[in-house]
């Protein structure tokens, strides 16, 4: 936690610094963005954020799972899952510093 994890508070702070709205309104806008993305996904609509990535909902069929502790077979019901695909811009951004460090070591 701490410096190693970014949270809503950090995003609100960044918006506050960038745009100069009140802290309260900055926090509300961050919440509003997350809620709008969530709502679109709940309605089954994919969300594409250019140079970041896309979120899509996939339907999974029923399958037989196993309780790893007891070995008992249990049906896993059909359900919807969310998948995130990072854009190339984001993938490159994440790898740039990393690959330089690897080459140096």
């Amino acid at each position: 936690m701490g410096d190693q994890t970014l949270t809503r508070a950090d995003l609100s702070e960044a918006v506050y610094q960038e745009v100069g709205l009140s802290r309260n309104e900055s926090a509300e806008l961050v919440e509003s963005v997350l809620e709008k993305v969530s709502r679109a996904l709940v309605q089954g609509e994919p969300v594409k954020i250019s140079s970041f990535g896309s979120f899509a909902v996939r339907q999974k069929g029923e399958r037989i799972g196993r309780n790893p502790k007891t070995g008992e077979e249990v049906p896993i019901l059909p359900r919807k899952v969310l998948v995130f695909r990072a854009s190339h811009v984001l993938k490159n951004r994440i790898n740039n510093g990393f690959q330089d460090a690897e080459e140096a070591s």
């Binding site: 970014l6 950090d10 995003l11 960044a14 918006v15 960038e18 745009v19 900055s26 806008l29 961050v30 963005v33 954020i49 140079s51 970041f52």
Partner: peptide, 9 residues
């Protein structure tokens, strides 16, 4: 605001 949020992430 929107760019800042995704950029920070």
């Amino acid at each position: 605001i929107v760019s800042t949020i995704f950029n920070e992430i």
